[in-house]
Amino acid sequence: MQTILYARVSTSDQTIEHQEAQARQSGFLIDQVVADHGQSGLSTSLRERPQGRRLFDLLRAGDVLVVRWIDRLGGNYGDVCDSIREFLKRGVTIRTVINSMTFDGATTDPTQMAVRDAMIAFMAAMAQAQAEATKIAQRAGIDHARAMAQVDKYRGRKPSYGRSQFQLVQDLLAQGKGASEIAKLAGLTRQTVLRIRDAPQQAEAALAAWDL
């Protein structure tokens, strides 16, 4: 009999060490850690993950399988349910770090089995819904970043001066002051003042493009 922690991380802000530490802090005495890295995706089943396959080979009757949450045991609702059923049939007890849930195949009472299976199904469905929501949010974030990059590319480089500074430079140039003196008064570099002086229409267009 052994207690195996199965951990899976798919992003840079997750670590196997953190999941192991969290399990141990929750009172689990871990004999072995089996971990997969970078195996994300709703279509990737537990058996398709390198260490997921190993997990099926390792677990025997009487073993305890510890996971942070049941979503670690599959890529989607069906996979999670199938994996849990398989382990329970083998006589493996599954325990979660979050909420300290325990699932085993000890009961033979039909009603208790139905309640257990319904809870597993509900949790698996919620896990997939959360994964899909996260995926949609990530895609939206990526699309937004790309759109903003295209906007920035179209607008060109953001001006190093504001509307008030542009107007001040224009006024001081009209008064006949030199570029070095204007730069000091406006808080700009001499090169910026010269760009405004030599191409005032382009300088003002840059402000308009950036809504400045």
Rank of each mutant, 00 (worst) to 15 (best):
M1Q: 03
M1R: 08
I4F: 05
L5V: 03
S10T: 06
S10F: 07
T11C: 00
I16L: 09
E17Y: 00
H18Y: 09
E20Q: 13
E20Y: 01
S26M: 09
G27H: 00
G27V: 00
D31Y: 06
D36W: 06
D36N: 06
T44D: 04
L46K: 04
L46R: 00
R49K: 06
R49Q: 04
Q51Y: 01
G52K: 00
R53H: 05
L55A: 02
L55S: 03
R60L: 02
R60K: 08
G62P: 04
V67P: 02
G74H: 07
Y77Q: 10
G78N: 12
V80Q: 04
C81S: 00
L88M: 07
K89M: 12
R95G: 11
T96E: 03
I98W: 09
N99Q: 04
S100F: 11
M101Q: 12
M101A: 06
T102V: 07
F103Q: 08
T107V: 09
D109S: 06
P110D: 12
A114Q: 13
R116N: 11
A127H: 11
A131F: 06
A131H: 11
A133G: 11
A137R: 14
G141Y: 00
A145F: 13
V151N: 14
K153M: 12
G156A: 08
P159G: 11
P159R: 11
S160W: 09
S160T: 15
S164D: 15
Q165E: 07
F166L: 15
D171P: 12
L173W: 01
Q175W: 10
G176N: 08
E181Y: 03
L185Y: 00
G187I: 07
G187V: 09
Q191N: 13
R195D: 04
R195Y: 01
Q201Y: 01
E204Y: 10
A205E: 15
A208D: 15
D211R: 11
D211E: 15
